[in-house]
Design a protein around this nucleic acid. Structure first.
Ligand SMILES: [Mn+2]
Ligand SMILES: [Mn+2]
Ligand SMILES: [Zn+2]
Ligand SMILES: [Zn+2]
Lengths: 143, 143
DNA sequence: GCGCATCATGAAAGTGATTTTCACTAACAT
DNA sequence: ATGTTAGTGAAAATCACTTTCATGATGCGC
């Protein structure tokens, strides 16, 4: 899994004529080993422990590259920070977001996806991506 | 329609012990007469033509009030600006967003809404709101 | 109407999360 | 090894709000 994503990223870097750097590899490993939905700052702080010389701007720019290469997805859950989700080959999932504790649960629903495509088709739209987020209280927070 | 929303807003203002002001009425009229999905700045610039003395902060605060009163909804379409959508009594719709020309098309799909509730129920979630946006190219942009 | 406790307004300053700049360094093709 | 081009990190700049503060309206009770 990690191996596959590292290859996808390195292939992307090569294809774009970009360079392979120590920092990018360190950030890539940290990203792939981290929880999903981390913000730039969260990943930066995590990295800083073992790599205090890596700058915030580099983490920021590298996460953008991850998104461009297809191994990450930029997310906005309304908490004011951009978060980066992990993306698997040909996989897709949507989110349930708890407004109480901030928990984020992932789910997949093929029927909804199909209906979305029907809606798009009915409007002559060609869908590239979509965002489906359900906000509310998780089982634990709805006391 | 406008009449109904103005009443909803004025009732809200009264209920909260707030005051009815010239500015709020001007902004309300401009908002209800405007295109949907306008940003604070867009509405501010539109207003400035006939009311150059109304400040940005007042537009900002008044749009928040509209959202609180239930006649508007804050939206984030990923272009970096918060947009305010019009909300009708008991109505709900989702959006198709063209990444080519920025066009925003509204749609309703009861089946999808039902499926969303089933997903939430399956996870013990109590849904408060949701966001469904389909991004892609509109009929005109997919040349 | 008048007084006045509140709330509202507008200009300007403050915030927080990026995003860009710039001087310097590292990659890598030759 | 060298030159060319891309990358890095610290700091400054942006951007879109958001709050502050001195001043101005509102509107209930006389
Ligand atoms: Mn996810
Ligand atoms: Mn809409
Ligand atoms: Zn929760
Ligand atoms: Zn379009």
């Amino acid at each position: 899994m990690k191996r596959v994503k590292k290859k996808i990223f390195h292939d992307y870097i090569a294809r774009q004529g970009l360079k392979s750097t120590r920092q990018r590899d360190i950030i890539l490993e940290a990203f792939l080993s981290s929880d999903r939905h981390l913000s730039i700052e969260e990943l930066y702080l995590k990295l800083r422990v073992k790599h205090p010389n890596i700058g915030y701007a580099t983490v920021y720019r590298t996460l953008k590259l991850f998104a461009e290469s297809g191994i990450a997805r930029e997310m906005q859950f309304g908490d004011g920070q951009t978060r980066y989700d992990h993306v698997g080959e040909g996989e897709h999932h949507d989110h349930l977001v708890c407004t109480g504790c901030g928990a984020i649960i992932e789910f997949e629903n093929e029927t909804i996806e199909t209906l979305q495509n029907e809606v798009a088709a009915a409007h002559g739209f060609l869908i590239k991506t979509h965002k489906l987020e359900l906000y509310g209280l998780c089982a634990r927070c709805r006391g």
